[in-house]
Nucleic acid binder design. Structure first.
Lengths: 153, 153
DNA sequence: CAATATAGTTAGCTATGCTAACTAAATTCA
DNA sequence: TGAATTTAGTTAGCATAGCTAACTATATTG
C-alpha cells in the first residue's frame, strides 16, 4: 500500500532531511573542534562536565551525571580525572555523607576559559567567510536547538 | 590595557558566543541521538564511516580515513568491525595489492537506512514543537555549517 | 637491484560509554 | 528501636574509538 500524502507526512519529510544532515554536520563539526581541545590536555567529556560546573555552579555527582546524560559510574570516572588534574574540588556534604559537592577550582575555571578562547578563535576563523546574516542564522538555530534540548523528554 | 572596541572585535564577540553554544549544543544533541543509534548494534564511528560508503561509493581505507578525519589505524579497526558484522565487503585492488576497496554490502545499506529512519523519527518527534519557520531556520543553518565544513582548512 | 616511499596492520596507551555488583549512609516502618 | 529498603557513589570488567610507534608488504625510483 502506498503512503498517503498528508500534512503530517510533509512535515516528517522536512524533519527527515533536517535531522539527518544535522546529525552528520554535528559529528563532523565536533571532530574538528575536538582537535583544538586536545591542547587543553583534557578530553571532551571532562571539558563538558567542567563547563557545566563553571557555568552552573557546584553539583553532586548524580546531578552532574544527569546534566551530562551519562550514568553515574561514567561521571564518577570523569570527576576522578578532573580531580586528579586539580580542576575540581570535592567536598563531602555534611548533611548527607553519601553525597559530594563538586566545584571547579580557580585552575579549572582558568583552563575552561582558555579552552573556550582557543575554540572560539579556531571556529571564528572558519566562520569568517560567513555574512553577518548567515552568522545570526546559525546563532538563531543554535538557540532553537538549545531550547529543544532543554525540553527533551 | 583595555581592549579597543572595533568592528573586528564586535564580529569576534558574536562568533565567540555562537561558537561556544554551537559546540555545547552539538555535544548534547549527539549524546541524545547516539542513544537511538545503539539499536543498530554499531557504534557512531562505524555508522558514520558506513554512511560515507553508502552515499559516496567504494573507497580505499586511506580515503575513508581522510573523509572521516581519523588516522589510518583508527579506520583500520573501524573497517574491521564493519567487516566482522558483514556490513562492508573488502576486495583487494588488483592494480596495487597494498590497497583495498571497501564497499557496503546490501546488509550494510539496509542497516544504515533503518538507522537513519529510526534517528529521523526520534529527532522529528522532538522537533515536532517547532514552527515551520524554526525548522527551516535549523535547516538553513545546517546547510551553512555544512558548507563551512566542506571549505574547512 | 637497492633504497625509498606508500598502504595498511599490530601493539599498546588513554578516554568514554555501558552493566552488574558492591559499600556505605540515610530512611522507612513494623 | 532495629531490620529492611532505598539512595549515592565506587569498583570491576567489557566494548568502542582515538592516538603514536613500530611493523609488513608492495610499489616506485635512482
Amino acid at each position: 500500500m502506498a503512503k498517503k500524502i498528508t500534512r503530517q507526512n510533509a512535515k516528517s519529510s522536512a524533519a527527515f532531511s533536517v535531522a539527518d544532515r544535522l546529525h552528520s554536520t554535528a559529528i563532523h563539526l565536533l571532530r574538528r573542534v575536538r582537535k583544538q581541545d586536545v591542547a587543553s590536555g583534557e578530553g571532551p567529556a571532562r571539558l563538558s562536565a567542567l563547563s557545566v560546573l563553571v557555568f552552573g555552579g557546584a553539583k553532586t555527582l548524580g546531578d552532574l551525571a544527569a546534566a551530562e546524560q551519562v550514568k553515574p559510574p561514567t561521571m564518577s570516572r570523569i570527576v576522578a580525572g578532573l580531580a586528579r588534574s586539580k580542576l575540581v574540588q570535592i567536598t563531602p556534604d555534611p548533611q548527607d555523607r553519601r553525597r559530594m559537592s563538586i566545584r571547579p577550582t580557580p585552575r579549572g575555571v582558568k583552563l575552561l576559559h582558555e579552552g573556550r578562547q582557543r575554540r572560539i578563535e579556531y571556529l571564528a576563523s572558519h566562520l569568517a567567510g560567513l555574512t553577518p546574516e548567515e552568522l545570526s542564522q546559525v546563532a538563531e538555530s543554535t538557540e532553537i536547538l538549545g531550547r529543544v534540548l532543554r525540553n527533551w523528554a
